[in-house]
Nucleic acid binder design. Structure first.
Lengths: 110, 110
DNA sequence: CAGGATCCTAAAAGATACTG
DNA sequence: CAGTATCTTTTAGGATCCTG
């Protein structure tokens, strides 16, 4: 099936939603390396504000790509982790990188 | 090399720029099938306004992914066509589709 | 530690009407 | 035919300060 407008049912849009938004691919890259706490993610991405990080994570959780667990006690510790669905994004991130490299090479010729 | 913030130098961001913006992947899909005039693109995507189509095309041309030629005479005819660089986006679109399908399958399980 | 609450600005998208 | 010009609305992103 094909579409003549952006639709949430189109697989392309589903995949796009997962990697959309500033910082999204960088957050995902970090999570590809294993579970991370909120602070760990912030340390790795110092210029990313708490608000935007929260937005990205909420979105990923809502899409079923990331899960979050909280340690009991105080202070709280969180652990964000890719779900099986989230791991399916790895080939897409790889392809984004490869395509970008190819474009840099091709465009450098002229 | 890796990055700790979104940078125009990162290959991932280069590739992302090419497919970013509403309707972008749909316009690219059309162009993957061959050269298209402005009107042909509008016919294929009836809900896309002339303004946004112009923005998408200008952006693709500016990135060196699409070229535009105008017929002499009147009325003018345009022909938008993927450049060699633009054709490099095909595997990325395929991967977006495949990943979306995989996500739909995985998320349907639960 | 892990966010939530506000406020603000800028960019993106859409509607409508018009032009070379 | 192939756009441009305006205007309005929506959305995203960032800054700052506050809380369980």
């Amino acid at each position: 099936m094909t579409w003549n407008r952006p639709s949430q049912d189109c697989p392309v849009e589903i995949a796009l939603a997962a990697i959309s938004g500033r910082w999204a691919t960088l957050v995902l890259r970090d999570l590809m390396h294993g579970p991370r706490s909120f602070s760990q993610l912030r340390e790795g991405l110092p210029s990313l504000s708490a608000k935007v990080l929260t937005e990205r994570l909420d979105s990923l959780v809502a899409q079923g790509l990331v899960s979050c667990s909280r340690s009991p006690g105080f202070p709280v510790r969180t652990s964000y982790e890719l779900t099986p669905a989230g791991m399916l994004l790895r080939p897409l991130l790889v392809q984004l990188y490869r395509t970008g490299e190819a474009l840099l090479g091709e465009l450098a010729q002229h």
